[in-house]
Design a protein around this nucleic acid. Structure first.
Length: 994
DNA sequence: GAGCACTGC
């Protein structure tokens, strides 16, 4: 007890030492106070377009301008006041007034009413509602109505028939059948597909039932044929105009390639007025509206639902690959299940792998199931026992099972652990007995008894590859491993082995972060006598198909992202594959000829596998899903999500709702706030969305859009296996000491844009290990964000580089502040500085120890100016890592962070006031500085509320209220607060403390 | 000293 107290006291002392002192110098203090004073005396908050903006040519379009400036009157939306800031110390005010000096007394003067006043000041002159508020209020009202009763069933009018189109489609069809040679040749190919024989049955079952489940393995042609059967049936019955088939795909590439394949089968091209097309984010070739098939990603269909709740033009929806159970597809199924009631004419077809078609049928009221036999070559399968027997393999010491580590458990737990261990041993003996009966050698049994099945034995993999190379049929070998590390090690083993010389073997690592991902040699058949060996992650399971694979080696392990709501942390850890994964991996061997698949796990291991991987909805954060539920007016979140095929834990749901409330996207009634309404409309996570809005308001849009695109998609840096050090150096060079991965990203991107202008972009990408494809995608995404901001009213021009929103784009300190505004509450505090090979250690509100991911430009930094960082991604792998960090000064945290509190009773030396954000981000501040922060923050929160409900470009004119306030804020939050040399020394010494 | 894979009018 005594020890615990002592240790607590020590921690408190250290924390006090670690507090940064936040004090403006006198001159700066005066400057900001003057700006604030001016601001208070200014009468109007309204932007004055005629005399403002950085760019003199800038004009607000009339429609937007009028939107932004309602006349006068009071506003009536649900949460009229910003709620996320409270100055809690007011309870202590009385005693504080008595015991502390004038400064502190003054500090609290009038603060009770300050926020109220600031807000009313802004609004009392406004008359009537802005367009945004009207839209917003009617949205929330509709949402409440949808909770009470089903929407108006009569709203859907039915698909309009167009007789002239019916006739022309029919004529066209006949013409092709009789006169089009290519079309007829394609028909012959289609006839050979297993699904073609079932055409009549499929058409009939779909016609007679509202929901149909079609199962079938790869190669049966369900994806390309089923939609065509439906459309052709309508066309030949002379009602082609009544048919619009939409088929969703989980991946962008499959949506395009399937659509192109189908167009080819119909001797057409995708898009224009043709019968087939596709739509994915930022790319589309739309077919005609009626009498056509559209392939799209699941996300696109969700977006349509926003503007068209009934999917008015669609007659048939096909959800493909439902067995993959991705988040969006599961979400879509819940919505469609309800939509089917409102639209009795709508047909839904679910396409799945054979293994669990029943599950989907049950979910949709025992919908009829049909199975299409697959067409693949037979694949011979071996398990670990077979491989060990075949190779008479003896594992190295490293892979021999160690004595199970006895955890220091006592009593019942200890007993349970021992029992568990005995049960496992018994299980193993039984299993070995059955193998023995089947004739496996005692040598094999002994090896199996001793082998450690938690590790992957890459020496065994290498041995197996040697075996296949010498004795197996010709054809490529595909090895599935869980991740980067195994790819690297296996390649090293093979490279060292003289047998795998480059003139005989092509060894290709395949990982989403490696540059090989775009190389053609992955798909090309090597010259005769040369064998291709691909070492891949699960990217080769679904996303990348290599046709000439004959041998598959499946190590049985897969890395999966998971989310632990109790600890509120994401994890990425290897685990056993599911039976579905194993089947899929096996299937990769039989695409061109009979194949072989070696699974490196025993029959006993396999008996414990799950049938399917855990659905994504059970292992991910749910913020975006919650926002979409609200935006789609689907009522309260919990009852809605309970309708899902598999219901996520309420814990996970509450963690997500809490975050949405914390960032002021949902109010405590779980309704969208005005801010949340904007965020829900953006195709990014809510924190990144907030960052984008702040980027626009603070006039540093272009770099912020780059960062937002990078965080929401992926950063454009390759990780080359051979030149990792060099790649790290190049990123350091781009960072140029800014101690921010985010600003480094923005610099890399703008460097690429400049290089493009000079025509040297290829060299630039090569030099900095950048993926041109990813950069192009980021560039397109930025354009999409800008269009969205224009639509929301935060931009007056669709050019995100326009000076009116980039006046401060060169101000890195401001960019850090905007990052902080968006990414909050993802804050970390520096605890120990890396020293002598030991890593830099930080802490967050919930974790005492987190590390900087080695890929970050801050991983090896030896000097910092602040103790505080903001980050986007935290994930637990071998450690808890922060993947990207930006150093940030205290002011942005005080200004954009959560609830501020100050405990006057604990005034410390030099009359400093302790100030903390969300009760853990602690500073000491001079009373005058604290006062400024507080006043300014109230003003800003009121202004923000105003800007969010009256979207328009910021007015930077210093004579306008808005301009003066924004300038004061920027002046404050870009103030650099450096930690002293003494403090720095302490951080290094902390290592010796514990 | 480390990076499964997808997706968004």
């Amino acid at each position: 007890m005594w020890y615990a107290q002592k240790s607590k006291q020590k921690t408190q002392e250290r924390e006090e030492r670690e507090k940064m002192v936040v004090t403006l110098d006198k001159e700066h203090e005066r400057e900001i106070s003057r700006l604030l004073r001016d601001f208070k005396h200014e009468d109007s908050i309204r932007p004055q377009p005629s005399q403002s903006y950085a760019d003199p040519n800038h004009q607000i379009p009339a429609s937007k301008a009028s939107k932004g400036h309602p006349k006068t009157g009071f506003i009536s939306f649900d949460s009229p006041k910003p709620k996320h800031i409270r100055w809690v110390s007011e309870i202590k005010k009385e005693s504080a007034g008595a015991s502390n000096g004038d400064a502190v007394d003054k500090f609290y003067k009038d603060m009770d009413d300050y926020q109220e006043e600031a807000y009313e000041e802004l609004y009392k002159r406004e008359e009537g509602e802005s367009d945004f508020i009207a839209e917003f209020n009617s949205h929330n009202e509709a949402n409440r109505r949808s909770q009470e009763s089903l929407p108006d069933m009569m709203a859907f009018q039915g698909i309009q028939r167009v007789k002239s189109l019916d006739q022309s489609l029919l004529d066209d069809h006949h013409h092709k059948l009789t006169n089009d040679q290519t079309f007829r040749e394609m028909q012959d190919i289609r006839r050979k597909l297993p699904s073609y024989k079932m055409q009549k049955d499929i058409v009939r079952v779909v016609q007679e039932n509202q929901v149909t489940v079609i199962s079938g393995e790869t190669g049966c042609g369900k994806t390309t044929q089923v939609a065509q059967f439906i459309l052709d049936d309508f066309i030949t019955r002379g009602m082609g105009s009544m048919c619009r088939v939409v088929c969703t795909q989980p991946r962008r590439i499959s949506a395009i390639s399937v659509a192109e394949r189908v167009a080819e089968e119909r001797n057409e091209r995708c898009g224009k007025e043709n019968s087939v097309g596709y739509q994915i984010r930022l790319e589309s070739q739309l077919p005609r509206k009626k009498g056509s098939i559209l392939y799209c990603t699941t996300g696109i269909m969700l977006k349509w639902l926003l503007s068209d709740n009934y999917l008015q033009d669609t007659s048939h929806i096909i959800l493909d690959e439902v067995h993959e159970r991705d988040l969006l597809c599961d979400f879509l199924m819940v919505i469609l299940k309800d939509l089917l009631v409102q639209r009795p004419d709508l047909k839904l077809v679910l396409m799945s792998a054979t293994l669990n078609a029943e599950q989907f049928s049950e979910y949709f009221g025992n919908a009829p199931m049909m199975n299409i036999p697959g067409f693949t070559y037979p694949v011979k399968e071996y398990l670990l026992e077979d491989v060990i027997q075949m190779l008479t393999y003896h594992p190295s010491e490293f892979h021999i099972k160690r004595k199970p580590q006895q955890k220091r458990l006592y009593g019942k737990k200890r007993y349970e652990q021992m029992e568990e261990q005995m049960r496992e041993e018994e299980e193993m003996e039984q299993f070995l007995a059955t193998l023995s009966a089947k004739g496996y050698s005692s040598d094999t049994l002994e090896t199996l008894r001793n082998v450690d099945n938690t590790r992957i034995d890459l020496d065994l993999v290498a041995e197996l590859i040697r075996h296949i190379s010498m004795q197996g049929d010709e054809g490529a070998i595909l090895v599935f491993v869980p991740g980067w590390e195994e790819i690297k090690t296996l390649k090293q083993i093979l490279d060292k082995d003289g047998m795998f010389s480059p003139d005989m073997f092509r060894i290709i690592p395949l990982h989403s972060l490696m540059p090989t991902i775009n190389q053609k040699q992955v798909f090309q058949r090597p010259p005769p006598g040369v064998r291709k060996i691909v070492i891949a992650t699960n990217i080769a399971e679904t996303s990348i198909t290599i046709d000439d694979v004959v041998h598959v080696i499946d190590t049985g392990k897969i890395k999966m992202k998971d989310f632990n709501p109790e600890k509120n942390i994401a994890t990425l850890l290897p685990r056993w594959v599911s039976r579905a994964n194993a089947r899929q991996r096996r299937g990769r061997a039989g695409r061109v000829q009979p194949g072989v698949c070696y699974h490196l796990y025993t029959g006993l291991d396999e008996s414990k596998f799950d049938d399917y991987q855990l659905p994504e909805i059970l292992r991910t954060r749910l913020e975006e899903l919650c926002l979409q539920i609200k935006l789609l007016k689907l009522g309260k979140i919990e009852p809605f999500i309970r309708k899902a095929m598999q219901v996520p834990s309420m814990e996970a749901l509450h963690v997500s709702i809490q975050l949405l409330e914390d960032i002021n996207a949902l109010d405590d009634n779980e309704d969208l706030t005005p801010l949340g309404y904007h965020l829900a409309k953006m195709p990014v996570d809510p924190q990144t969305g907030k960052m984008i809005l702040y980027g626009a308001l603070f006039g540093c849009l272009d770099p912020i859009l780059t960062i937002a695109a990078s965080l929401s998609f992926k950063d454009a840096f390759y990780i080359p296996m051979e030149e990792q050090k060099k790649a790290d150096q190049q990123r350091q060079e781009l960072a140029d000491g800014c101690r921010s991965d985010h600003i480094m990203l923005a610099r890399a991107f703008s460097g690429w844009e400049e290089a493009k202008q000079r025509g040297t972009d290829r060299h630039y990408c090569y030099n900095y290990f950048l993926s041109a494809n990813t950069l192009k995608m980021l560039s397109d995404m930025k354009r999409q964000f800008a269009d969205l901001l224009l639509e929301l009213g935060f931009l007056s021009n669709r050019n995100a580089k326009h000076p009116s929103v980039n006046a401060n784009s060169g101000n890195d300190e401001l960019i850090r502040a905007v990052l902080c505004a968006g990414l909050y509450p993802n804050v970390a505090k520096l605890r120990k500085l890396g020293k002598g090979g030991r890593p830099t250690v930080l802490s967050t509100k919930t974790e005492r120890k987190v590390c900087i991911h080695p890929k970050s430009v801050n991983a090896n930094e030896k000097e910092f100016e602040s103790r505080w960082f903001i980050f986007h991604l935290k994930m637990k792998t071998t450690n808890v890592y922060l993947y990207d960090l930006s150093e940030t000064s205290p002011f942005p945290l005080l200004f954009f962070g959560g609830m501020i509190s100050s405990d006057v009773g604990k005034q410390s030396a030099q009359s400093l006031v302790p100030v903390s954000v969300d009760e853990w981000i602690d500073f000491n501040a001079s009373p005058a500085t604290a006062k400024i922060v507080k006043e300014l923050r109230y003003e800003f929160d009121a202004l923000l509320e105003y800007k969010i409900t009256h979207p328009c470009v910021t007015d930077w004119n210093p004579r306008s209220k808005e301009g003066a306030l924004m300038r004061a804020i920027i002046s404050l939050i870009t103030t650099e607060m450096k930690i002293t040399t003494e403090e720095h020394k302490q951080m290094t010494q902390n290592y010796d403390d514990d």
